[in-house]
C-alpha cells in the first residue's frame, strides 16, 4: 500500500476518482501475495500490481466499470476461469481480486 499512496493522493488532489484493486485470495502459486494492490484513476492511469502483469489490463477495465457504477466487485482470474485464454495467469495459479471505489 505504501508505494501507491503518493500517486493516489496526487490523483485525488487533481479531483480524479480512484479505484483500488486488492488480491483477496490466492490459490496455488501466484506472483503477488494476499493484500497486493493496484490503484486506477478515472482516466486509466495505474500504480501498483495484482499479478506479474498478466491480469492488470483486465483489472483496469473492471476498475473503470466499478468507478462508473460506484459498486465494488469481486473478480477471479486463473486457468480454471473461462477467460483463461485472454487473461490467464502464466504461473497456473488463481487469484481473486476485490475492486472498489476509493470513496472511504
Amino acid at each position: 500500500m505504501k508505494e501507491i499512496l503518493a500517486d493516489i493522493e496526487n490523483w485525488q488532489q487533481a479531483g480524479k476518482q480512484v479505484a483500488l484493486a486488492t488480491v483477496v485470495e490466492v490459490y496455488g502459486s501466484a506472483p503477488r501475495p494476499l493484500g497486493a494492490k493496484l490503484a486506477v484513476s478515472e482516466d486509466g492511469a495505474m500504480v501498483g500490481s495484482v499479478s506479474g502483469g498478466c491480469v492488470e489490463s483486465a483489472t483496469l477495465q473492471e476498475a473503470l466499470e466499478v468507478l462508473s457504477s460506484g459498486k465494488p466487485r469481486l473478480v477471479s482470474y486463473g486457468i480454471a476461469d473461462e477467460t483463461a485464454w485472454e487473461v490467464g495467469l502464466a504461473c497456473g495459479g488463481t487469484i481473486e481480486v476485490f475492486i472498489e471505489p476509493l470513496d472511504w
Binding site: 500500500m1 486488492t22 494476499l34 493484500g35 476485490f98
Partner: peptide
C-alpha cells in the same frame, strides 16, 4: 461474511 484482513 468474508473479510480480508490486510496488514501493514
Amino acid at each position: 461474511l468474508d473479510l480480508l484482513i490486510d496488514v501493514h
